[in-house]
Write a protein that binds this DNA or RNA. Structure first.
Length: 645
RNA sequence: GCCACUUUAGCUCAGAUGGUAGAGCGGCGCUCUCGUAAAGCGCAGGCCAACGGUUCGAUUCCGUUAAGUGGCUCCA
């Protein structure tokens, strides 16, 4: 028998007979303890089961269950166990589709006439426990596609048949544990005993292969971890996310609301939310002014012809609301601001000397979103973009992109977002503009990113048809990412609206146009901010900065005085002069997440001061009104990042 | 839009195999005037999402519609 040499990634080499399983080979290379945590391995770079037989010399690195990769395998295997449980309980009439591991868990799609109910979850979980306890091994077999097709056809597993046919390969691999066999590439756990902690989370509808023309399946989501502690940690994190839900906090803190009578996806900003938004807008405008932008305002509707010219009626009609008649002419609500900005550009002839032109607007747009897509502030039908359009010459593009990135990251950072995922999307299959232009623009985007020292991922073919783009996803406090910023080069609109400028050569040229939004939409950004801060906003954009609390009615007159002085000085202050106990007032202010509580009793009234209580329960020494005003102003200045510039 | 689930007082939620409903918080009133996370008592709030059907009778059963939630899909 031939001997093979097997080398552990980190060094040690042993000789084993051919056809030795990976698991066995590893047993000779690892400690017992390590061996117990090993569930799969990378052999010559390919991830395989421990049961895989070695047929050539190999470099092996074990995959431990507690690693990211191990967790994925664990979850994938748990999905198989869930499928087995479901088939056990609900019979062969239930058809299985696919069941992959996903971020934070797994799912499996089933076809079943009856809906799954939460009570079913208990039964399924119980059956899963039994399967896990049986310790059944996950057994891999390779069979010819025709054999597999026969087998799945006999069971009526039509989705599996479709998958095999589309694979169009000679042999496929099957995994069997207990009574359940699934078409699967693997790898899987050696056996079910590695499944220590799992939970089914929810059921949702999903189309077969994500296409709404196909069958609607029931998708059961679950998660699994290698021990109970981690599962609990995850479930706790879900709880925490629930607590931070901007819809809940928006209601509790009276930031925004929606009403049936007004319509879904249409946001009503309550006074506190409006204040928050105003502070963001003011800051945004200031920063744009500093960065050499000019501010625009444009209308909410325009003649339908405009949208014909812009091409929106061709490629965006399904997101636009029906036209309205005004003096027998059709008008439509705007889904984007760009044509209006172009209108301003075209209001007179432009010279290359004016470039770059940077115009920004907090422009409110309306887009039709499918009813099922609406979600709090994050997905709405009317929203305000922090939009801007830049017109420049090709050779200015890179600098402009660099400047945008600079402003973009600066603003995000000021709001407390310091981690991003950046994507560069290149030319899709269908596009307008010349290959040269695409190449130049894409290069300019790349150069700008590199000059700014930003790492990014390439999204080949994911650009919009009119130009390449950079998308920035921000990461919040809980590590979730949100798409907000987008920077897009546009070769299309300048052409359609015949946007030109007179060059140094006295000829007419077409400028490059850049669209960009940093926060994306104010609605979404505020939603993300609420969740990021859990409603505990930094002083500089807290809708209410301070609340005055008197101890008894005796200090009411002094409090009125303090209140009006502070309000005049621009401090966002409220007064709570009700005849309630101090404890009660403090509790309410605390729940309202107000940064400073100003407590006024006889002592303070006597000394003409206030005692400052912080959100964390600590007290600052009593200070005068003007000292407090100064303190607030200084902190706000620092928060807005003024000192950095 | 599609699938599933949900909709009871301002908010959070109970409730009855069909006989028109309750709690806590909040609001209002009275008493208390009180120093760092909930004082006491009382009162007022509901066409039980809307509309149709079944029924002697519907908030409860059935259907339709609307809104919400979780997904699919799409995206700021």
């Amino acid at each position: 028998m031939t001997n093979l040499s097997v080398t552990l990634q980190e060094g040690e080499t042993i000789q084993v007979p051919a056809s030795t399983s990976v698991g066995k080979a590893l047993a000779g290379l690892q400690s017992n303890k390590q061996q117990k945590r090993t569930i799969a391995a990378r052999v010559n770079g390919i991830v395989v089961d421990l049961s895989t037989a070695l047929e050539e010399d190999a470099v092996i690195s074990p995959i431990q269950i507690e690693t990211e990769e191990g967790l994925t395998i664990l979850r994938h295997s748990t999905a198989h166990v869930m499928a087995e449980a479901v088939k056990d309980i609900f019979g062969p009439g239930v058809k299985v589709a696919i069941g992959p591991a996903i971020e934070n868990g797994f799912y499996y799609d089933f076809l079943r006439d009856e809906p799954f109910s939460p009570e079913d979850f208990d039964r399924i979980e119980k059956r899963m426990e039994e399967i896990v306890a049986s310790g059944a091994p996950f057994v891999r077999t390779e069979v010819s596609s025709t054999t597999a097709i026969d087998a799945f056809a006999a069971e009526g597993e039509k989705y599996k048949l479709e998958l095999i046919r589309d694979l169009a390969v000679k042999t496929v691999s099957l995994y069997k544990q207990g009574s359940f066999t699934d078409l699967c590439r693997g790898p899987h756990l050696p056996n079910t005993t590695f499944i220590k902690a799992f939970k089914l989370l929810r059921v949702a509808g999903a189309y077969w292969r994500g296409d709404e023309k196909n069958d609607v399946l029931q998708r059961i989501y679950g998660t699994a971890f290698f021990d109970k502690k981690d599962l609990k940690k995850y479930l706790d994190a879900l709880e925490e996310a629930k607590k931070r839900d901007h819809r809940r906090l928006g209601k509790e803190l009276e930031l925004f609301t929606t009403q049936d009578q007004i319509g879904p996806g249409l946001i009503l900003w309550q006074p506190k939310g409006a204040q928050l938004r105003r502070l963001i807008e003011d800051y945004w405008k200031d920063e744009h002014y500093r960065h050499d932008y000019e501010l625009l305002y444009t209308p909410h509707i325009a003649r339908q012809d405009l949208w014909k010219t812009s091409g929106h009626l061709d490629f965006y009609a399904e997101n636009m609301y029906s036209p309205m008649d005004i003096d027998e002419v059709k008008y439509q609500l705007k889904p984007m601001n760009c044509p209006f900005h172009i209108g301003i550009y075209n209001s007179r002839k432009r010279s290359y000397r004016e470039f770059p032109i940077r115009w920004c607007e907090l422009g409110t747009v309306y887009r039709y979103e499918r009813a099922g897509a609406l979600h709090g502030l994050l997905r709405v039908r009317g929203f305000t973009q922090d939009d801007a359009h830049i017109f420049c010459r090709p050779e200015q593009l890179e600098d402009e992109i660099f400047n945008i990135l600079d402003l973009n990251l600066h603003i995000l950072k000021t709001f407390g977002f310091a981690e991003y995922d950046i994507y560069l999307s290149t030319r899709p299959e269908k596009y307008v503009g010349s290959d040269d232009h695409w190449q130049q623009a894409t290069d300019a985007l790349k150069q700008a990113l590199e000059k700014k020292n930003l790492s990014y991922q390439l999204d080949p073919g994911e650009g919009v048809f009119y130009g390449p783009k950079i998308d920035i996803k921000i990461k919040d406090q809980l590590g979730r990412s949100w798409q907000c910023s987008t920077i897009q080069v546009d070769f299309n609109l300048p052409e359609r609206f015949q946007v030109t400028y007179t060059g140094a050569d006295n000829q007419e040229h077409q400028p490059i146009m850049i669209h960009r939004a940093l926060m994306g939409s104010l609605e979404r950004f505020v939603g993300v901010l609420i969740e990021h801060y859990a409603g505990v906003f930094p002083l500089w954009f807290a809708p209410v900065q301070a609340r005055l609390l008197n101890i008894t009615d005796d200090q009411a007159d002094y409090c009125e005085e303090v209140y009006s002085q502070m309000r005049k000085a621009g401090v966002r202050i409220e007064k709570d002069l009700r005849n309630e106990k101090l404890n009660y007032k403090i509790r309410e202010a605390q729940l309202a997440k107000i940064p400073y509580m100003l407590i006024v009793g006889d002592k303070e009234k006597e000394d003409r001061t206030v005692t400052v209580r912080l959100r964390d329960g600590k007290n600052l020494p009593a200070m005068t009104i003007s000292d407090f005003i100064r303190k607030v102003q200084e902190e706000c200045r620092a928060g807005r990042g003024i000192e950095e510039r």
